[in-house]
């Protein structure tokens, strides 16, 4: 077992992990942060996306020990200071960008990383960026719309409610 120390959502945490323990497992099982979901075994679905030192990472593809000393942010730490939904989360609710909710944490974290890199992405850029996040419920229409709305763009011309 190896001792790891990291900052998770601004709070210092530590734990003993095996070499094979994935960051996703450390967050879910050691830290009880079950908002980070595991939807596949091949780093394809993106339900487990978190930020490590500000970059979007699939936490199922990184060992917990590799995150030693890092600053990790998960979906649980995304709300505003008063607990209200942040701009991206609120846009997902306003535009019905989620249904079953399972892929949602990864979508929210990927969207945050995208908007940091590209504050006003085009529809095509949003779709291309979401290549690593699979949603089976929404057909992506409302996710793309929500992310564009969160970037401050007018989405009223995009079809449907």
């Amino acid at each position: 077992m190896t001792k790891v120390t990291m900052t998770v959502n601004g709070k210092a945490v530590s734990g003993d992990v095996e070499g094979r323990t994935l960051l996703s497992a450390f967050l879910r099982e050691d830290q009880g942060l079950t908002g980070t979901h595991v939807g596949c075994d091949t780093s394809q679905c993106g339900a487990c996306v978190v930020h490590v030192n500000g970059k979007a990472v699939k936490s199922c593809t990184m060992f917990a020990s590799e995150a030693n000393g890092a600053a990790v942010d998960t979906v649980e730490g995304q709300t505003n200071a008063d607990g209200s939904l942040n701009v991206i989360q609120q846009a997902f609710q306003d535009h019905h960008g989620l249904q079953c909710g399972f892929c949602t944490p990864g979508m929210v974290m990927s969207a945050a990383a995208l908007l940091k890199e590209n504050p006003t992405p085009s529809e095509a850029e949003v779709r291309e960026y979401l290549e690593g996040n699979i949603c089976r419920c929404t057909g992506y229409h409302n996710i793309v719309k929500a992310i564009m709305a969160a970037s401050g763009q007018d989405v009223s011309a995009i079809a449907a409610e």
Partner: peptide
């Protein structure tokens, strides 16, 4: 009415409870 979904808040904040989340 196109009422916004109340279930969204827990899903968007990572506080949903799926079977594998239960200990």
């Amino acid at each position: 009415a196109a009422t916004l979904r109340r279930e969204d808040v827990r899903f968007l904040t990572g506080t949903g409870e799926y079977t594998d989340d239960i200990v």
